[in-house]
Nucleic acid binder design. Sequence first.
DNA 1: CTTGACCTTCCCCTACAGGGGAAGGTGCAG
DNA 2: CTGCACCTTCCCCTGTAGGGGAAGGTCAAG
Lengths: 129, 129
Amino acid sequence: MRIGEVAEVVAMTPKTLRFYEEQGLLPPARRGTNGYRQYDQNSVDRLDFIARGRAAGLSVNQIRNILAVQEPGRAPCAHVRDILAGQLAELDTKIAELTALRAGVAASYHAVAAGDPAACDQSRICSYL
Amino acid sequence: MRIGEVAEVVAMTPKTLRFYEEQGLLPPARRGTNGYRQYDQNSVDRLDFIARGRAAGLSVNQIRNILAVQEPGRAPCAHVRDILAGQLAELDTKIAELTALRAGVAASYHAVAAGDPAACDQSRICSYL
DNA sequence: CTTGACCTTCCCCTACAGGGGAAGGTGCAG
DNA sequence: CTGCACCTTCCCCTGTAGGGGAAGGTCAAG
């Protein structure tokens, strides 16, 4: 398959596939006599895997780490599990921080909303923040 | 206070303070006769607010929107309230997105953790992601 | 034969949030 | 007076995840 066909199958662009190859997420593609990259079902599977990782919020770097561990030896799943656990912890922290900030903004909002609009209009200055 | 002192107090660098000023998060600093920027407790308070926002994952742009509301002499309270409401909605959306992503990652994590390591070894790609 | 669609490499561009370091001015201590 | 730490502006660099478009090669069809 040519790069454009594969790209369409996996819902990416040729640019993205070349980028992933350059970044080491794909092995250097075989080339035809014309120099065109040639792909097969293996490539599609790998790209689908990459797409799932991206959808799970993993960075290209994290995915490369996962893929690199597959090559030599064993236990890629344990590695994947650890990376996902880290991802969960990161998300939990971020959610907690955002929730705290939301509370702060909500407090400001209620202070403003509870203020007397007349006083505000008079001074043209919002004094409730 | 000089820029370096303030930077240390708020655990940032002088570079960052100049960057925030350039980006409109800080008003253009007063200057001494020598051209040095001069800061006061107001600046520190504002920078602390910015730091909390950044720590919560808000972009400089979002923080600027929040801070623009606090500029005195500008907007009536109704407008202030609306902008804060917009910020709240944005935060809610972001929290919801992160929460959904967390659920997806958690599902993948449990699938991997519950998976058979043998099956993992067989396929070149972790089949549980 | 030529057109159009595809492919190749190459370099630059985006937004984000600053960091590095140069070249030059300032202020205080020894 | 000199050294050093600090400040100023200026421009370029980093990493992320690609996108835009140029210049040129290739292939199938009309």
